[in-house]
Write a protein that binds this DNA or RNA. Structure first.
Length: 893
RNA sequence: GCGGCUGUAGCUCAGAGGGAGAGCACCACCUUGACACGGUGGGGGCCAUAGGUUCGAUUCCUAUCAGCCGCACCA
């Protein structure tokens, strides 16, 4: 045992290990890349530029599979472009993620010191967040490295960097000056738990089982009543009116009368407004302007008060009388009970309705009336829609254009102020003396209107997406006209998940157009969501999340990347399963071992032939052709962002054709006596492997680099090796069809062996009846392959030979193969076999004949299709004839 | 309500106007001088349903059914 261990160890030291071990490779390779500066862009380069920005992840977050997905796709793109001769830059960076980061640091401080942020004070708290960022802010960028991301780290940015913060202020001031940013007293979405305003898209509408309460509001004079229907009775303390439709005949006489609001001493009028739907509920709507956006508008029209009855923390205020201090939920429960008891409540109707929830913490959002900052969207949306319609912005897959346009067309003003401490503070100062607002790029010490020194800055910060929206140009140095900005903006491609199409992509587009006059990227590549193996969303609460770092640790980054890339079909979700990662790992191991084989069979001082100057065998020509075709396909797929298809083409070529067939074919020459043929084969092996590695490199960068190093020494990196250019590669279609015939024959014999339980190693006598002179030449020229792959001790090839007695027959396109068996051939079994084959062929022949007999088909189908169909027909007919002959012979025995 | 996606082998999913594919699983055989994370051979599918376009539809169009996702909501 000890000896064996030692042997294995020695073996590993001497040559590449038989099992690829990513853990011992990937870290070293990434360091090599980073130290070599291979990913650094060069603005002075003569190459054409290609640029991308990384969607900035949360600086204090850690990598999840969604990141892994778009990072992998982006890395594939940028590596492909870099190898294709572009000065490619991929700008990385992180996002300050206002709410998430603040909440996280608050929690940490609460747990360690038992203090709230208010106890620490704003300055101290912000300092703590920076400390946190400095300590944990490298986690995610380290993880992107572990994944193999070929980012230009010298250009790394953070949304709260000085430069980017300057860009934020510049944008704010310019929009304010143009009237595109304003401060307004409006109903916004308020999250009582995060205690901040949210934008419309940060609210998720979830269907909830609720109740429609029918509540009696008596008239003040004691004569009669109206019945209002509401899902939120607790807001009645903020009611200022009850509205009915002006044309509603039932309620004409009510309009203008006064109601006594139950449980209060307040009197509210009945008003008429067309907003009311006569069909819904009772046709009487209580109007609560401070707690409902529609009511707010009704209130504005009728110049009504806007009293709030709920505090920012979600509890009831003094207007709610004895319910003061209760939470919204408790107040509702209590109130409903009291209403029941007091006979105000006349009906409770179950109702499913959509209720807004905070997308971050799932708390029910409170529509709240407050002063907030908004971006006026209409003037920004217009040029954006124009850019999409004119094709300056391309979506992959296309269908997202429609989604994007729909959203843009109906977008409402964007609430950008957040009641947080972590973020870009709004550059607006209020004057205590004249009450005017001063908005400025620089910090303000005196009011620009009245010169008063008594000014104070707005307490709020901006929505994190406000700074993310500037990312493609703020990272390039804007508003300065830096060399990077001039060369790399607008960027070439943006790749991200469709879940942030509105949050991020849309906003980058209109900000880009507004401030640079350009769409910030040409192509938007959108991928879906990674789901758990059972198809459910991965989530913390379900505990079914998979940590990409665990996957990398277990299987290697390449396996994860290959899995994700191969699972990508444009715009669709994919399920993650370890079975698929395993199969990727196996593929990588296959590449590793194929490479080992090639390296083992090439002398250290090997000088390859010039393949255009030496005679090639048909298998050489075949694999070179298939290599060229694969290179062309993969290139096309990558250019169209068809990552899954690219991966599949490579998988099939590498495994089925290069490994299973060519490497096996090559052994004949490698272990043979013909030095010239051996050298040719070695050259082909090296050529195809080298090309294959380069084609694979964007998807699985580590293993391909490791092999490349073993093959070429350590001076250069495959990451900057030239992309295989299919246009310059010769192809040999004739050899391809010949090798196909050869493979068909080999498979047929293997099939006979398997069916007849003839051990693969057991030699047979093989008789080959060639169909014609061409086939005869083919079989003769491939004799050595037939012998080896059929394990034939004797091989007899002829046209028109007599079938040997007691032989099993296989009919192939180039002729018939006879394998005489020592044991008696079971005639019945053989007849069954051939009869099955005959039936299949008859079907095929019928199908083809039907087609060819159809005059319309021959007249209207493309010439090539008709020709191909005729060829097929001939092939089937010949095979059928041969099978029938053989059956006849068997019946005579 | 409006919009979109998905429905193909037991499972997960590709695919393309002209002979149904992969991975995993399954069956049989094989340690053959790169690889058992391997090799060889094999079984398995009216490509959701109904119409239409077409010489030809699993693929394009329409409708239906089923599942999923956005957006908008009348309390």
């Amino acid at each position: 045992m000890a000896q064996l261990d030692q042997e294995t160890k020695q073996q590993e030291e001497n040559s590449l290990s038989t099992v690829y071990n990513p853990q011992s490779v990937e870290g070293r390779i990434y360091e090599f890349w980073e130290e070599g500066g291979f990913f650094k862009a060069d603005p002075d380069s003569k190459k054409p530029p290609f640029s991308m920005v990384l969607p900035p992840p949360n600086v204090t977050g850690s990598l999840h599979l969604g990141h892994a997905w778009d990072n992998t796709l982006q890395d594939i793109i940028v590596r492909f472009k870099r190898m294709s001769g572009f000065d490619a830059v991929w700008v990385p960076g992180t996002d300050h993620a206002g709410i998430a980061t603040q909440a996280r640091v608050e929690k940490a401080i609460r747990e360690t010191e038992g203090k709230t942020r208010h106890q620490l004070g704003r300055t101290e708290f912000v300092k703590r967040v920076w400390d946190w960022k400095n300590e944990y802010g490298h986690t995610i960028t380290t993880q992107i490295r572990a994944l193999g991301g070929s980012c230009d780290w010298s250009r790394e940015r953070f949304t709260m960097d000085d430069g980017l913060s300057r860009a934020v202020r510049e944008v704010f001031v310019r929009l304010y000056d143009k009237g595109l940013i304003y401060r307004g007293h409006r109903i916004i979405n308020w999250c009582p738990r995060c205690s901040t305003a949210l934008s419309d898209i940060e609210v998720e509408h979830v269907d909830v089982e609720g109740t429609l309460y029918h509540v009696r509001y008596p008239f003040s004079d004691g004569v009669g009543e109206v019945v209002v229907a509401t899902t939120r009775p607790e807001t009645m303390f903020g009611d200022v009116a009850v509205a009915v439709h002006p044309d509603d005949e039932r309620y004409q006489s009510f309009i203008g009368r006064t109601l006594a609001l139950p449980f209060t001493d307040r009197q509210i009028p009945v008003i008429a407004d067309e907003y009311v739907d006569r069909e819904y509920g009772t046709g009487c709507v209580k109007i609560t302007p401070a707690h409902d956006p529609n009511d707010f508008e009704v209130g504005e029209r009728h110049h009504l008060d806007q009293p709030s009855c709920i505090n920012l923390d979600g509890t009831m205020n003094s207007l709610a009388g004895r319910y003061q201090g209760l939470t919204r939920e408790e107040a509702r429960r209590q109130l409903v009970e009291d209403l029941r008891g007091s006979a105000y409540l006349i009906q409770e109707e179950p109702l499913t309705h959509a209720v807004g929830h905070c997308s971050r913490c799932q708390t029910v959002v409170e529509p709240f009336l407050s002063d907030q900052w908004f971006v006026r969207m209409e003037p920004l949306a217009k040029p954006t829609l124009e850019a999409v319609r004119s094709g300056q912005l391309r979506f992959v897959p296309e269908r997202f254009e429609k989604v994007f346009v729909n959203w843009m067309e109906s977008v409402r003003d964007w609430c950008i102020s957040r009641q947080l401490w972590w973020g870009h503070r709004i550059p607006a100062w209020y004057c205590d003396d004249c009450g005017e607002i001063t908005v400025s790029r620089d910090n303000v010490t005196e009011c620009s209107h009245c010169r008063s020194k008594s000014v104070s800055q707005d307490e709020d910060v901006l929505d994190t997406w406000f700074s993310s929206a500037l990312w493609p140009f703020s990272t390039m140095g804007w508003p300065e006209e830096t060399p990077d900005f001039k060369r790399y903006f607008p960027t070439s491609v943006l790749a991200t998940g469709y879940d942030i199409l509105f949050f991020w992509v849309a906003r980058m587009v209109f900000m880009g157009i507004e401030f640079t006059g350009k769409v910030p990227f040409r192509d938007v590549v959108l991928h879906g969501l990674i789901r758990a193996a059972d198809g459910r969303k991965m989530s913390k609460s379900l505990g079914n999340g998979v940590d990409p770092l665990d996957v990398i640790g277990q299987y290697g980054a390449d396996a994860l990347r290959f899995t994700i890339a191969n699972g990508t079909s444009p715009g669709n979700d994919q399920r993650f399963s370890f079975e698929r990662v395993e199969s990727s790992r196996n593929f990588i191991n296959k590449i590793w071992n194929a490479s080992r084989f090639v390296l083992m069979n090439i002398p250290a001082d090997f000088v390859p032939f010039n393949l255009s100057k030496v005679p090639l065998g048909i298998t050489d020509e075949w694999i070179l052709t298939r290599y060229a075709e694969t290179a062309r396909e993969v290139t096309n797929h990558l250019e169209r962002y068809d990552f899954g298809e690219a991966g599949r083409a490579l998988y099939d070529f590498a495994w089925d054709e290069f490994c299973d067939w060519y490497i096996e074919f090559s052994k004949l020459a490698l272990y043979g006596d013909d030095e010239q043929a051996k050298h040719t084969t070695q050259t082909v092996l090296v050529t195809v492997l080298g090309g294959l590695l380069r084609l694979l490199h964007p998807i699985i960068p580590f293993v391909t680099e490791e092999i490349w190093q073993a093959q070429h020494g350590t001076d250069a990196s495959i990451s900057v090796a030239p992309w295989p250019d299919a246009k310059t590669m010769p192809t040999y279609p004739e050899s391809v069809s010949k090798v196909q015939l050869l493979m068909e024959a080999i498979r047929a014999v293997r099939n006979i062996r398997a069916e007849r339980n003839v051990a693969p190693g057991k030699p047979i006598d093989l008789y080959v009846r060639a169909r014609d002179e061409d086939s005869l030449r083919l079989f003769h020229s491939t004799e050595s392959y037939l012998r080896r792959f059929c394990t034939a001790q004797t091989l007899t090839i002829a046209v028109g030979m007599e079938a040997p007695a007691t032989a099993v027959t296989a009919v192939v396109s180039a002729g018939e193969l006879f394998v005489p068996l020592e044991s008696l051939v079971d005639l019945a079994q053989e007849r069954d076999r051939l009869t099955k084959e005959r039936d299949r062929l008859i079907q095929e022949v019928d199908r083809v004949e039907k087609k060819l007999n159809n005059a319309n088909f021959v007249a209207r189908a493309p010439e090539a299709v008709v020709v191909a169909e005729r060829e097929k027909g001939k092939d089937y007919a010949m095979k059928l004839f041969a099978v029938n002959e053989r059956l006849k012979a068997l019946l005579n025995e």
